[in-house]
Computed example of a mutant assay.
Amino acid sequence: MKHSVTTLNTKRLIASSLKKIMSKKPFSKITVTEIIKDCGVNRKTFYYHFADIYALLKWMFEEEAVEVVKNFDIYTNPEEAIEFVIEYVEKNEHIINCAYDSIGREEMKNFFSSDFRGIISGVITKAEKSFEVELDADYKKFLTNFYTEAFSGMLIDWVKDREFTDEKLTVEYVTKTVKSTIEGVMQKEKDNKPTPDSKTNCP
């Protein structure tokens, strides 16, 4: 336990230095040397925890945002998770834009897609249990990919064009869409599910 806590604290220390430097220069211009000099760890320690600066950036977003979102009950109450994401973007607008400008839209979206996929798959699984249905594996995979692409892409677009987006409406629209579409899929699956009493009439 002590080792894991020390490891987490070291990662957070390194991530803090990255954020500090990102406030002063483009992400693509930052070096490992600058980061370790700022936080006081050696190069070996940095590479023990992270393969490169891109891995550090991804971990930072996961630690500060994705892992927190996982603790919300997105299926039952998606508003809280969406509001948290909006607040996180507001607090870290410069850092997120710095990363976006350096690595591009698609790479930035890929950062979030892998994590979103797990979160959304969990939401769909919870909906299946709530409606007592089981989707076909291929269809569940399709739905997971569909929502992952939609939400990760929307998040990246929103980061770059936030001045044109009403935050309250964003929460309302995303919540309404998530609830109505997923529940609609589950209800249709349930309606098509054979009942124990159904029998095939044979001549």
Rank of each mutant, 00 (worst) to 15 (best):
F112T: 07
G104P: 01
F146W: 10
V178C: 06
K91G: 08
N97P: 01
N97F: 00
G122D: 07
S130N: 14
R162N: 08
N97T: 05
G153R: 03
E107P: 00
V159G: 05
Y173R: 12
R117S: 14
C98A: 14
L169C: 08
Y139P: 01
Q187M: 13
R117Q: 13
Q187N: 09
T165D: 00
L169Y: 12
E93M: 11
M154R: 04
E183K: 14
D161Y: 13
F142C: 04
E172M: 08
K140A: 06
I96F: 11
I86H: 03
E106I: 03
S113D: 14
T181E: 12
N92V: 04
A150E: 05
A99I: 14
T125S: 12
E149W: 11
E134I: 10
G122T: 07
G118C: 04
T177S: 11
D166Y: 10
Y173N: 12
I120Q: 03
Y100Q: 09
K188M: 12
V85I: 13
G104W: 00
K141E: 15
E132T: 10
D136W: 08
E107A: 13
V123D: 02
E93A: 11
L155T: 15
I96T: 12
D115H: 13
T165W: 06
D161M: 02
D136M: 06
T125C: 09
I120E: 03
N145T: 07
T181S: 14
C98Y: 00
S152I: 02
F142P: 00
S102G: 03
D166H: 12
S102M: 02
I103Y: 03
Y147P: 06
T165K: 08
R105A: 04
L143E: 08
G104T: 02
E183P: 05
A137T: 14
T177H: 10
F142D: 07
E132Y: 05
F111S: 01
F112N: 04
D101K: 11
S130Q: 15
G184Q: 12
K179T: 15
C98H: 12
F164T: 07
K160Y: 02
E183D: 15
D166K: 08
G104H: 01
E106Q: 07
V89N: 04
F112H: 07
K168L: 06
S113F: 11
V85E: 07
N145K: 05
T125N: 10
V123Y: 03
S114G: 04
